[in-house]
């Protein structure tokens, strides 16, 4: 059920061709109306940016999806941290990669810490760390049934 867990093991990479449509779609569906995510003239002239840029909600969504595609949907992401170092723009070939940084077994679950990078060629666009809980075994109760006090992300 769980992926093979080994310290420093890499996650499979995911490649995404970023387009104007995907950036605008991510911004609009996350209800982010700021012009730097849909108006190229504004982004260049007012934002001093090379083009429209991917918003942070879309980046958070991509990172979460990258993690649960690897872990499977029974996993439960507890904490996401990311810093955006350079913009993600239309035409970028974005690659998500990750590595297991820590494994912390607890009764009925295993906390896994992942270091994830979003890169465009040699350029690091975003660095992220994610703390995700995986069921300890197939017999473990669903992580989503934990009472609020027992869920400590």
């Amino acid at each position: 059920m769980n992926p093979n867990l080994a310290l420093h093991a890499p996650l499979p990479t995911r490649r995404i061709e970023v387009t104007t449509k995907s950036i605008i779609m991510g911004a609009v569906t996350s209800r982010d109306w700021a012009p730097l995510h849909h108006d190229v003239v504004w982004a260049k002239t007012e934002g001093n940016l090379p083009d429209i840029i991917m918003n942070n909600y879309t980046q958070a969504g991509l990172i979460n999806a990258y993690v649960t595609d690897w872990s499977g949907p029974a996993a439960r992401v507890g904490r996401l941290r990311f810093s955006m170092r350079s913009p993600i723009c239309p035409g970028d070939a974005l690659e998500l990669s990750g590595v297991i940084e820590a494994i912390e077994p607890e009764p009925e679950l295993i906390w896994v810490s992942l270091a994830i990078e979003l890169t465009v060629g040699e350029r690091v666009a975003t660095r992220s760390t994610v703390r995700v809980a995986l069921p300890a075994s197939e017999q473990s109760p669903s992580l989503w049934h934990r009472q609020a006090g027992a869920w400590k992300p």
Partner: peptide
């Protein structure tokens, strides 16, 4: 400041 960007985010997820 006419412009502003997000530089980092930390999110702890609780009840969905």
């Amino acid at each position: 400041y006419p412009n502003g960007i997000v530089t980092s985010v930390e999110m702890a997820y609780h009840e969905p």
